[in-house]
Structure formats: structure tokens, C-alpha cells
Design a protein around this nucleic acid. Structure first.
Length: 342
RNA sequence: GUGCUCGUAGCUCAGUUGGUUAGAGCGUCGGUUUGUGGAACCGAAGGUCGUGGGUUCAAGACCCAUCGGGCACC
């Protein structure tokens, strides 16, 4: 498929690396481009706290601020306040939470999430949703969160429409609604119907890949596959294992984002042909002169950085190793996407 | 040569008036990571306590000798 955004076209399926604080950790904007990805993610929650959307707007918006020319999708902050569950309070109005660094109280609502994302200058935005875990405590809240996510979606959409009504179509960002419902097929189906009944530009599937057995996620993706609106892109939030990507693409998913390629990279883990993982800090690579994956076309492999060199850099704590392997891992996922486009 | 001082894990060091199976940090080795509070975390291996005697129910610790390092003095 092809997604038209105000910053350019995005071919799907596509993988988006997470540039949570405005940068994919350890990479320059052009290094990110060099991996062949079509779009990157940035985060409402983090950028709102620091440096703040007003500062970024004053510095020309996300593209100017981060020097990234690729289309940028901002996440809504819903997942972040979920992962900060210890210090948050959910009300119908929104989520109250404390800045983990300063202790300051903050309130994120569907309306403020839309305002922040627009101020940041996002090309694609996500509606503010209520995310739950899939453990026993989370399960007791699944239905409540599912219902609230829909009410919040209507508020997100209303605020989005209010703020963008005077924009030309070519300047207007795209808005994704989020499907919730935990591991309940009944709720998921209903949630998908609600989201697709509204004039959102894309469908995001949230609340999966949060620790449930892989089988459960696969089953849900297979179940949802025939029900997607084919005219709109389908975005599976938070998925980034190669095998998961393949399965999801085969079940009609168009977009992914995940911290895994970059987090793994910083910790010395690289994917190689066959979706296998290697731990570059292992002693067996001390004298290994081969690139991470001889069949890979990423710049790290093409320029010949050896496993032995990378191991050394990891062992002495140089951040270059994490950057070089991030380029490789992102490229690995991007190649999976490209293979499916052929 | 004399005096003082120090020798405990690969490294740097804890180790109570002598009291279970001698600990830590770092390093080494292995693993975990799914809409980034994490360049984070979890686990494992690794020691005849310089050596040899002695005292004691019991010694890393006390005594003697010896080897090695450091410092001071002659």
C-alpha cells in the first residue's frame, strides 16, 4: 500500500523505529534514512515533558527540530502513562501522572494529546487510548478500558477536527484510532467496528505485545485480519520481533513500531539471516572478522565493521557499537517489509 | 643490614573481641529485552586467605619462621 502524509509518501508494509525523545537513540536523522525506513515515531509524552511542545513549535516543529525529513508519527502518550502505572491516576477526564524526574503533576487528556501532537507538527497522530496489561489485574479492567478508549476516541476526533478544520488537506496530519479489547475476541471485534465507523485515517491495534503468550497475539491478529477496512492503513503498535512482523504482515498489518531493534542493538544483540539472534558481546566473536550478517546490505555491514570490532566497542562501553548495530537491526526489519512489497 | 608495613577472587579492596559454607565492586562468562521511566537488568563461574610450622574445641584473624612488595633509617 501507500500512505499519503503531508511530509511525503510511505510505502507499506513499513517499520518505524522509535525516536522517543525526538531522535532514534544513537543515530543522526540521515543515518535513520540510510536504513531505508519510510517514517519514524516520536513521543508525545516525553516531548511534552521535555522540552515541551511550545519550544519545539518555536524551533520550527519536529522536522526542523530533529532534522528528520521522513514523515513522523507521534504516539499519543496513552501507552506511556500505562507503563507508568505506579504513579498515575485514570479518570474519565484523562490520566493524571507525575513527571518521574521532577515529581510535577501532569494531566494528559484526549484533547491535550491532540493539541500537543499538532503543535509538535506530527504527520501522523494517534488517538489517546486507555491501555491495560494482560495480567489478572489488567484483565479486570479490560472492558472498562475498552469502553473508555472509545469515548476518548470520540473526544480525540472531535478535538482533532476542531483544530484542523481550517487546514488544507495537504497540511492536515493523519489520525489513527486505537483498537483495544485485551484478549477478548468479542471486545476486539466490537472495538474494530467502532474505530472503523469513525472518520479516522488509520486503524491502530493497541494493547498487544505487552507480555502475553505469542500464540495469543497470533490468534487475535488472525481473527481480526478479515475485518479490516482495506482502504485504511493498519498499524500494530509495539511489535518488532522479526517473526511477529512476518506473521502480522501476512495478516494484513501495514505498519509497525518498536524499540526492540534499537534497544537490542545497544545491548549487543543483532538479528541475522533466518531471524536468529547473535550476542555480539560473546567471547566467540573476539577474533571474528566477518560483518554482523554477510548477507546484509545495511551500511554497518557494507562498510565492513567486523563482529570482533563491535564486540570490542561493546566491551569498552563505546556508544558507537550501539549505533552501528541499531542501523543493522532497523535495516533488518525494514528488509522484511521490503521483501513483502515485491 | 635494621626497623616499620602490606600480602584475601583476574583487578581494587571488606572481613567485628578468633566462631556456620570467606564477601563486595569492577572485570570475565551466559542470558533477558515488543506503542523506550532501562547504553538497562538477571544469573553463573572464579579463592589450598603468600608459604611452612605452632597455639586453640575452633585461625583469614593470634605466635614463630620464611618468601615477596612498599616505605624509612644505617
Amino acid at each position: 500500500g501507500l500512505i499519503k502524509t503531508k511530509a511525503g509518501l510511505v510505502k507499506t508494509p513499513t517499520f518505524m523505529p522509535d525516536g522517543t525523545r525526538g531522535a532514534v537513540k544513537g543515530l543522526t536523522a540521515s543515518q535513520v534514512v540510510s536504513t531505508g525506513v519510510q517514517t519514524v515515531l516520536a513521543n508525545t509524552y516525553h516531548l511534552h515533558l521535555r522540552p515541551g511542545e511550545n519550544i519545539i513549535a518555536r524551533l520550527g516543529g519536529l522536522h526542523s527540530f530533529t532534522r528528520q525529513t521522513l514523515p513522523i508519527l507521534t504516539d499519543s502518550g496513552g501507552f506511556q502513562v500505562f507503563s507508568l502505572s505506579k504513579i498515575r491516576k485514570i479518570t474519565e477526564e484523562g490520566v493524571e501522572f507525575r513527571d518521574p524526574l521532577t515529581g510535577n503533576k501532569n494531566l494528559l487528556t484526549p484533547e491535550s494529546s491532540m493539541q500537543i501532537q499538532l503543535k509538535l507538527g506530527a504527520d501522523m497522530m494517534v488517538a489517546f487510548d486507555d491501555v491495560t496489561a494482560l495480567d489478572d489485574e489488567g484483565k479486570s479492567r479490560t472492558k472498562e478500558a475498552f469502553e473508555r478508549t472509545h469515548r476518548w476516541l470520540e473526544r480525540s476526533l472531535a478535538e482533532f477536527q476542531r483544530l484542523t478544520k481550517n487546514m488544507k488537506p495537504s497540511e492536515r496530519p493523519l489520525l489513527f484510532g486505537v483498537v483495544q479489547g485485551g484478549l477478548s475476541k468479542k471486545l476486539r471485534k466490537s472495538s474494530l467496528e467502532v474505530v472503523q465507523s469513525l472518520p479516522v485515517d488509520g486503524i491502530a491495534i493497541g494493547g498487544l505485545s505487552v507480555g502475553e503468550p505469542r500464540k495469543d497475539m497470533y490468534e487475535m491478529l488472525k481473527y481480526l485480519a478479515p475485518m479490516y477496512d482495506p482502504a485504511r492503513p493498519h498499524f500494530l503498535l509495539g511489535v518488532g520481533e522479526p517473526a511477529d512482523l512476518r506473521l502480522a504482515i501476512e495478516q494484513g498489518v501495514d505498519m509497525f513500531d518498536c524499540v526492540l531493534p534499537t534497544r537490542n542493538a545497544r545491548h549487543g544483540t543483532a538479528w541475522v539471516r533466518g531471524d536468529k539472534k547473535i550476542h555480539l558481546s560473546n567471547a566467540k566473536f573476539i577474533q571474528d572478522n566477518k560483518p554482523i550478517d554477510p548477507s546484509c546490505d545495511c551500511t554497518t555491514c557494507k562498510e565492513g565493521y567486523s563482529r570482533g570490532f563491535l564486540r570490542h566497542q561493546f566491551k569498552v562501553g563505546e556508544s558507537l557499537a550501539g549505533s552501528l548495530v541499531s542501523i543493522h537491526n532497523i535495516r533488518y526489519l525494514q528488509r522484511i517489509c521490503e521483501d513483502y512489497r515485491k
